[in-house]
Every structure is written in structure tokens, then in C-alpha cells.
Write a protein that binds this DNA or RNA. Structure first.
Lengths: 220, 220
DNA sequence: CGAATAATCTATCGATCGGTATTATATTAT
DNA sequence: ATAATATAATACCGATCGATAGATTATTCG
């Protein structure tokens, strides 16, 4: 967003040498897209320097090496685009709308014209999970944290009587995340944005199944 | 399986030159595991020749180049391990058992000690779908075919009164395959075989939800 | 027995890989 | 100005990449 040369977020005193032109976050965002597109092995330094607009040594001074850049890019993705679906879920007070928004945002991000198709985690980093243990751990933790947050919300909705306790909240949470992963895989396999969006209602209904307000008991 | 030097399946007359020692299918199976482990970009010719036990030129004489080998490996996977879950599904006359067997076989294949973790399609080839159009098309077709077969079975069960028509058979089929993809991703992310197997019942129940024999109407 | 044929391996190709030593540039402090 | 300091780009490193030319080996045919 910020195109001015603002190296330090805090109004710190200017340091001595040549002023920094590298915007860490901007470069990182570009690197995310490269890894997202090509995976770890396919993301060559040439592609990365071309996308970020900085030379190899500059990239290496900011991030240690390709491996570290990849791990940092995963974090950046999780904190950015990767967090949007869950944020929409949690921001929506109505559980039906929340689940719907979750899949809607996810579907749009999986097919956004400004970004690669699918999900960096589920479609690109997942391959390297087999050979890079820290990548595998990162994905595992990411899934675990997301699941815990979704589960907590579902438990709250059960207590409020908005959601049946059958199936239990944790299984419902797993289903929600599973359908998100599958959505990303489908996008990567070529399913269009429209088709994905058409599937949102069904996915939401699956997750919300057995709700008290379902047909079998309309009374609240 | 066959360890003898049997190049031709049919009892054809011996050809002229040096007898072939390369068993195409065996080499292909080894190549599958390498691509499964490392993805397309990460599967170096050194890894491939080491795994198959044949030299580079031999590998290139049997398969055109690395790209062709990859595409052929995807076919081999789809016809082999990748077909087992659906085969178990179709072989089982009872729809509950069929769905259960589907996820059970899939979970075991995703965590088999003799093979890489996850699914070649959903965890390895999926990355290359972005950069290799023929890979993307292959995955898309594979999904489409599987979905059609599952859908046909579900439609049959609806006609037989074994399954509710709500949700419709095609959405049920999509859910089944989505949960299979997600299962593979979870395995790759580190979920253990036991944990995956414990999730089989829940997944099966989700797919079979709204069945006539469910709690809300026990009468058949 | 060669001669012909086919399959295989050794050795090597140019290109590209990730990574870095070195130099150039832009700023502040003196 | 000049020195000191920090950042960035040029140019290059050995290693490995995918791919292949050419030699080698094993078989059948004559």
C-alpha cells in the first residue's frame, strides 16, 4: 500500500548508511505469489528476484536463504490472505452467515485474478511437507490453531442453542476446514470461480447440518 | 510382483538385439513414489534413476522425457493405488459399508509405510497444475470421472430407497471426494494413521447424512 | 564364426540452480 | 570535504539440473 520509502514503521532516527529501498512486506508479498504459483522447488531465485524487483544479495540480506524466505512467506500468507476466511467467519455474529462467509471468502481468494489459483498451504507448501519437516510442522500448527478457533465458536453456538451438539463441535470444525482444503484443491484442478461460488451454499449446509432450525424441528 | 525378466506380457517371439532388462511397470511404480515424495520439480533425474535402478538414457528410451514420465506416472497412480478406494466403494453392495470402506482404504493408502504420505494427485501433482496445463487437465478429468461414478452409485441407492434424495446424489458425491482430498492433505500435514482412521466413521456419517434409516425416521 | 540389431551404460553437454565475494552507491558524522 | 557506515547491484562461484552423444554389451540371424 505505502509507496513511499518508509523503512522503519516507528518514527526512528535515520540510520547512518545508504537508505533502504527494500520494503520487506512488499517483497514478501511478491515472494508469496511466486511460491504459491510454483511451489518451493519450482520457485527459482531468478523468479523470486524478478518478482520482488530486488537483486539476489538484497533478498539474502533481508531473509537468510531460500528456505527461510519460504518459511517467512508461509507466515505472511497465513497472516494475510490465508486469515481472511477465518476472520470473516469470526466477524459474523450469525452462525449461518458466518459459515457462508467463510466459504465465500475462501472461494474468492482461491480464484482471485490478482493471485495464483488455490491456496499456498494446501496446494503448494503441502508438497514440501514431505521433505521439509519445519514446513510440515508449520502447516500442522496452522491447521490446529484454525480448528481450535472454529471449534470454540461452534461450542459457543451449541451453548446458545443455535447449533445442535450432534455432530460435536470439533467434528463440525474439522469438516469446515476439510471443505476449505478441498475447495482449494478443486480451484487448482481448474474449477471456475462461479462453480466454486455455487458450491458455497451446499458446503455451508453440510457444515450446519443437524441444526435445531432444520426441517426436523423448526421451533427455536 | 514378477521378478523374472519378462519384457512382453504376450508370448511373443524374441526380438533381435540385447534382451530388455527394464520392467516398464516396475520402473514406473518406483518413479511414482519419487514424484509422490518430491513433486515434479523436486524429483531430480538422479532420484529417479536411483529409485528405478536404471540409467538416465534407459529411462529416456522408455519414457520420452521427465515431463512424459511424470504424466505417465500420474496415469499409473490413478490406475493403481489411486483407484483402490473407489474400487472398494463400488465392490461393496451395502452403501454404508461402501462409503466406510472408501474412506478406510483411502486413509490407509495415505499413510502406508511402503509409500509416501498423502496422495500423489492431491498433494504433489496439484502444485504443478498451475504451471503444467496437461497436468491440470489430467487431474480435472480424474476428479470428473470419479465424481460421475460415485454419483451414479448414489443415484442408484436413491432409487433403491437406501439413500435420501436430499442432498442430491451429485452433491453427496462431491462431498465424498472432497473429504478424500482433505484426508490426503491432513495425512501430508502430519495426521497419523490412527487419527485418520478414527475420522473414517465421522466422514462416512457426513456423506450418508439424511439417510432414511437415520434417527429422524427409522422405518425402512 | 562374424554381421546385424537392440538395449544399456559411461561420460559429458550447456543451462540453470542456490549462494556469495566484491564493488558501487547513497547516506550521516566529523 | 572526508571518513564512516549501511545498502544494493554486478559478476561470478561450484554444484546440480535435464538431456544426449557415443561406446559397450548381449542377443539373434546368416
Amino acid at each position: 500500500m505505502n509507496t513511499t520509502t518508509a523503512p522503519q514503521p516507528s518514527p526512528q532516527k535515520r540510520s547512518r548508511g545508504r537508505p533502504r529501498v527494500l520494503e520487506r512486506q512488499t517483497a514478501l508479498d511478491q515472494a508469496v505469489d511466486v511460491f504459491w504459483d510454483h511451489g518451493y522447488e519450482g520457485a527459482s531465485l531468478e523468479l523470486l528476484t524478478e518478482a520482488t524487483g530486488v537483486s539476489r544479495p538484497t533478498l539474502y540480506s533481508a531473509f537468510n536463504d531460500k528456505r527461510s524466505l519460504f518459511l517467512t512467506a508461509i507466515d505472511a500468507y497465513e497472516d494475510g490472505i490465508g486469515a481472511e476466511a477465518l476472520a470473516a467467519f469470526e466477524a459474523n455474529p450469525n452462525i449461518r452467515s458466518a459459515v457462508h462467509a467463510f466459504f465465500d471468502v475462501s472461494a474468492r481468494n482461491n480464484t482471485h485474478p490478482d493471485h495464483p489459483v488455490g491456496c499456498l498451504i494446501a496446494c503448494s507448501a503441502i508438497t514440501s511437507a514431505q521433505t521439509m519437516p519445519d514446513v510440515r510442522a508449520k502447516i500442522e500448527n496452522s491447521f490446529r490453531r484454525a480448528e481450535a478457533r472454529v471449534c470454540a465458536r461452534f461450542e459457543r453456538e451449541v451453548e446458545n442453542g443455535e447449533l445442535s451438539s450432534k455432530p460435536p463441535a470439533n467434528e463440525r470444525a474439522k469438516l469446515l476446514l476439510d471443505l476449505m482444503s478441498a475447495q482449494a484443491v478443486r480451484a487448482r484442478a481448474g474449477e471456475s470461480r462461479d462453480d466454486l461460488l455455487h458450491g458455497v451454499n451446499t458446503r455451508a449446509a453440510m457444515v450446519l447440518a443437524h441444526m435445531p432450525s432444520d426441517a426436523k424441528d423448526k421451533a427455536r
